[in-house]
C-alpha cells in the first residue's frame, strides 16, 4: 500500500514539476508571473484530445500537443509578452490574468463545455503487479516522462551553450545584461519551451484526470503554491516544491482526509512565515 501511495504521490509531483518548471523559468528570465500558464496546460490537454479523436493515436497526441502548445506560447510571446517585458509588474500580471478569460472561453467555444476522457494507449492500459498490488502502468509512464524531462533539462542547462545562457540569465540577470546574453531569441525559445512543458503536462494527465473546462485554474493554483514554496525563479525550488506539495497532498488525502483540503495551504503559510522568499532563494 505504501508503495502505491508513494508512486501516486511521485506521479502527481512530476506533473506539478512540469508545470512549475515552466512557470519558474519564465519568471526567472522575464520577471513575469504568467497566470495563463494553467490555460496553456488546458489547451495542451484539449489539443491532445482532438489529435487522439481524429487520428486515434495517443502517441501522436503526446508528441504534437506539446509542440502545438509551444506554438501557442510562441504566438502569445510574439503578440503580447515581447512588448510588456519592461512594463510594470502589476500590469504584466493583469494582462496574463485577462488571458485566462480568453483561454477559458476559447476552449468552451471550440470544444464545448462537456468533459471528455482520453484512454491510455494499448501498451500502457494494463496494470503491473508490484509486490502483490496491481498498479496502472500508465502512471508509471507519467513518472518516467517527468524524470526524462528532469534529466533533459539538467543536460540542456548544464551541458549546452544555450542552457548556460539561460542559467546565467536566471541566476544573475544583472551580469547577463552586461554580457548581453539576455537576448530576445533566448527569451522567445525559453518562453515557448515553458509553455510546451505545460502542454506536455496537460496531455500526460488527460488519461488520468480527464479533460474539462476549469481544469486550468485548479492546476494554476497548485502550480503557484509550488512556485511560492520552492522560491520563484529557482529551478531547484520548482523540483523540491513539486515533490513537497505532491507528497504532502497525496499522503494528506490518505492519512488525514479531514484536512486534505487545507494541508497544502498550511505548508504554504508556514513557508511564508519562516522563509518568505521560498525554500530556495535566488
Amino acid at each position: 500500500m505504501l508503495l502505491i501511495q508513494f508512486l501516486n504521490a511521485l506521479q502527481f509531483s512530476m506533473t506539478l514539476f512540469l508545470l512549475a518548471v515552466g512557470l519558474t523559468i519564465i519568471f526567472g528570465l522575464m520577471k513575469i508571473v504568467n497566470l495563463a500558464h494553467g490555460s496553456l496546460y488546458m489547451i495542451g490537454a484539449y489539443v491532445g484530445l482532438s489529435i487522439w479523436t481524429y487520428f486515434d493515436s495517443f502517441w501522436l497526441a503526446l508528441i504534437f500537443s506539446p509542440l502545438i502548445t509551444a506554438l501557442v506560447g510562441a504566438f502569445l510571446y510574439y503578440i503580447l509578452f515581447r512588448h510588456i517585458q519592461n512594463a510594470d509588474p502589476m500590469k504584466q500580471v493583469l494582462l496574463t490574468f485577462g488571458l485566462i478569460y480568453i483561454g477559458l472561453d476559447s476552449v468552451r467555444l471550440i470544444w464545448g463545455t462537456m468533459s471528455h476522457s482520453i484512454s491510455a494507449p494499448e501498451l500502457l492500459s494494463k496494470s503491473i503487479i508490484l509486490i502483490n498490488n496491481p498498479y496502472p502502468s500508465y502512471r508509471l509512464f507519467v513518472i518516467f516522462i517527468g524524470i526524462l524531462v528532469l534529466i533533459c533539462l539538467y543536460f540542456i542547462l548544464e551541458k549546452t551553450v544555450i542552457g548556460a545562457k539561460v542559467r546565467a540569465s536566471v541566476d544573475d540577470p544583472e551580469a547577463a545584461k552586461l554580457l548581453k546574453i539576455n537576448t530576445d531569441k533566448i527569451l522567445f525559445y525559453t518562453f515557448s519551451f515553458g509553455c510546451g512543458l505545460a502542454g506536455l503536462a496537460g496531455i500526460t494527465v488527460a488519461p488520468i484526470l480527464g479533460v474539462e473546462p476549469g481544469m486550468d485554474m485548479e492546476v494554476l493554483v497548485l502550480t503557484l503554491i509550488v512556485v511560492v514554496v520552492g522560491g520563484p525563479g529557482s529551478l531547484k525550488g520548482a523540483l523540491v516544491g513539486a515533490l513537497l506539495i505532491g507528497f504532502v497532498d497525496s499522503f494528506g488525502k490518505v492519512y488525514i482526509p479531514q484536512l486534505a483540503q487545507i494541508i497544502i495551504y498550511a505548508v504554504m503559510a508556514l513557508t511564508l512565515l519562516f522563509r518568505p522568499d521560498g525554500l530556495y532563494k535566488r
Binding site: V33, E218, M268, L272
Partner: peptide, 20 residues
C-alpha cells in the same frame, strides 16, 4: 502572514487562499 509580500506574490497567495 501576507501583507508584506511583494505585489505579484500577494496576487499568487491570495488567489491560492481564495481557491482553498
Amino acid at each position: 502572514f501576507i501583507v508584506l509580500l511583494d505585489g505579484i506574490f500577494f496576487i499568487m497567495v491570495t488567489l491560492a487562499l481564495g481557491e482553498m
